[in-house]
Design a binder for these strands. Structure first.
Lengths: 224, 224
DNA sequence: ACAATCTAACTAACTGGTTAATTAATCCGA
DNA sequence: TCGGATTAATTAACCAGTTAGTTAGATTGT
């Protein structure tokens, strides 16, 4: 019974679980500190695993980083793709998409930071970003672009360019969280309380609605 | 005569210039690689200076990083503060501000990356960010907030909340550049050609105009 | 001659990655 | 079904290369 009782993760002999633990610890460290700042020793410790196991399951630090990235982006892709597959008219679909995207980003700070960090690194045109862009972003981008064009054709939307509109949408959602620490100091208000986050959600939806739709169809004002 | 001919910067005996060279090299490395990724040896080499000089002029890596940050943020602050001090009606002032801000960010990739990187680090609530927020951002934020409130009072703007609107504005400007490498792979188009950047500038101004002004006063459509 | 500026050489600590050995399930023939 | 062989999972200890930071002294303008 002692064999079952000892939940010591380090010697758990559950490869799937071990791998997952490493991946999660890695995601955390990479998200917080970037690939250069993350420490393999720290990751191993956080995963309650001997460091050599990192290299047993993953080739090296780079590969581990890549795996963490893939995991995060795949989650996002799966979730958002499902939203795009719902049967809704363009206007509702875009609004739903923005709302769901906001909720995902708000609820997955790790993924968010990981993605943002990788984007910054990519001046060095990383192979990781290349892969991730093609595999996880392009399908979303294409589908969302179609929805927008449909809304324009239907006369519901202004004639925006998806190649401009989509990054704008992402920007409004993501950047709020990126700038939260700065804004907390500047304004004295913590932007990350549930209430403030909800307010931001409304503001983003309102902002996008105002900029996208031909005639104002929702509540006026960005929020008080 | 050899003493004058040798332009070897390392022994130039121009302390101001040496300091500036170090700072610039540091800014570059920190912007590209973050504080953890930047290498003091590389910075020294790039500045054509012996590594020990970094420690002669700056206490340590952290301090050097802080100095680079301060330099970058001070530049931005000076530039943007001047815009806010121009005598213009709220609507024109906001539009001018956005345009100038866009141009600054587009023209100063180093500063941009430095700022963005520091924001990401600040989950660890860095002392640097604290200082920079208070010294360089708060004044801008307050003044811009006043302009927006004035525009609302004048009935020119919708009743937006500055605490929501300002980050949105920054997001639209900054995030485009952050996501450029990703977007290049996704769309196959390089977002950083002069033409594409100009298109983005228009799109941002249009987007913000549409979301801020009570009645549409400029060109329709976000761009084609 | 003297203080400010600068350098070559060095070090202590750290870090990614390896290795050789250990443990524990599983398989398999008698 | 017993027990030895096999293999997968895991670890302690280690190593070579790197990195921030130091030191002791050299150079140079005034």
């Amino acid at each position: 019974m002692a064999t079952l009782a000892k939940t010591r993760l380090g010697s758990r002999r559950r490869p799937e679980q071990t791998r997952a633990a490493i991946l999660q610890a890695a995601a955390q460290d990479f998200a917080r500190n970037g690939i250069a700042g993350a420490r393999t020793d720290a990751i191993a410790r956080a995963a309650r695993v001997n460091k050599a196991l990192l290299y047993y399951y993953f080739k090296d630090k780079q590969t581990l980083y890549g795996a963490a990235l893939d995991h995060a982006f795949a989650q996002l892709n799966t979730h958002m793709m499902a939203v795009l597959n719902r049967d809704l008219p363009p206007g509702e679909k875009v609004r739903t998409y923005v709302g769901e995207y906001f909720d995902f980003i708000a609820g997955h700070p790790l993924n968010r930071d990981l993605m943002q960090r990788e984007m910054m690194r990519a001046g060095h045109s990383s192979a990781h970003l290349q892969r991730i862009a093609k595999r996880y972003f392009q399908p979303l981008f294409i589908k969302l672009g179609e929805v927008i064009r449909a809304g324009i054709s239907a006369g519901e939307f202004r004639t925006v360019d998806p190649i401009q509109f989509i990054p704008s949408m992402v920007a409004l959602v993501v950047f709020y969280f990126t700038s939260a620490p700065l804004m907390k100091t500047v304004t004295g208000v913590d932007p990350l309380t549930p209430e403030r986050i909800a307010a931001r959600r409304d503001a983003v939806l309102d902002f996008i609605t105002a900029a996208l739709f031909r005639e104002q169809s929702t509540t006026q004002g960005e929020h008080v």
